[in-house]
């Protein structure tokens, strides 16, 4: 349990195992909301907020409820419910108290419940930071950090893609490749570039 573990997780979740470009989690919003940079950043922030808090909540549930009562098999169902309720709750709170923030990214919150990046990071945390039914050293902080890193990686991919797509609008591409197909092809090239990070020694 030291600093290098955190650096390794940051580099891993943001670059090497980027949630979109390598693990394919959260592709729907990636294709759907990456047309303009503004919304892409908002979506990225919303996702980062939710992945981080979801990591906290699901870790607590897993460690304090599911493991002591040997209910590990309820992982999927309890995580998705907690995420769904949290997202609803956050939306209501933000809408009432912080209208400016709500305007910036609140509308994307509803879309996030079924974003696989959120459940994905929660499940991944329990896979990576629990061993033989026990939390590994620093498990909680590592989980939260991984949740945050996943969000940052997501935002990075979104922002890069939206920049490219804004330019792409002026390009003459075959009609059948417009929108989704060309986005996938561009994402493929980005993913190829990101593959270069996998030589990183941590």
């Amino acid at each position: 349990m030291n600093l290098s573990a955190f650096i390794a997780i940051a580099i891993s979740t943001i670059f090497i195992n980027n949630f979109i470009l390598s693990r394919f989690l959260g592709l729907c919003p990636f294709i759907g909301v990456s047309k303009r940079t503004g919304p892409a950043i908002s979506m990225g922030l919303a996702v980062t907020f939710v992945t981080t808090t979801a990591s906290i909540l699901t870790w607590l549930i897993y460690d304090l409820v599911l493991i002591p009562f040997h209910l590990e098999y309820l992982r999927t169902i309890s995580f998705i419910l907690v995420i769904a309720f949290f997202v609803q709750f956050a939306e209501i709170v933000i809408q009432k108290n912080m209208p400016a923030i709500y305007k910036a990214f609140g509308i994307y919150l509803t879309l996030i419940t079924t974003n696989c990046a959120v459940l994905g990071v929660a499940v991944l945390n329990t896979d990576m930071f629990f061993m033989k039914g026990k939390a590994v050293a620093g498990s909680f902080l590592l989980s939260v950090f991984q949740g945050f890193g996943a969000g940052v990686g997501f935002t990075l991919a979104m922002v890069l893609m939206s920049g490219i797509r804004e330019r792409l609008e002026f390009a003459e591409i075959p009609a059948c490749l417009k929108d989704a197909p060309i986005t996938f092809i561009v994402a493929s090239l980005m993913s190829l570039a990101f593959l270069g990070f996998s030589g990183f020694k941590i």
């Binding site: 470009l21 989704a180 197909p181 060309i182 986005t183 996938f184 092809i185 493929s188 190829l192």
Partner: peptide, 16 residues
């Protein structure tokens, strides 16, 4: 990963 994205992109393009 890049191969997956390329395959799906080209396939959807072809189907369109």
């Amino acid at each position: 990963a890049p191969g997956a994205l390329l395959t799906i992109g080209l396939l959807i393009g072809l189907i369109n």
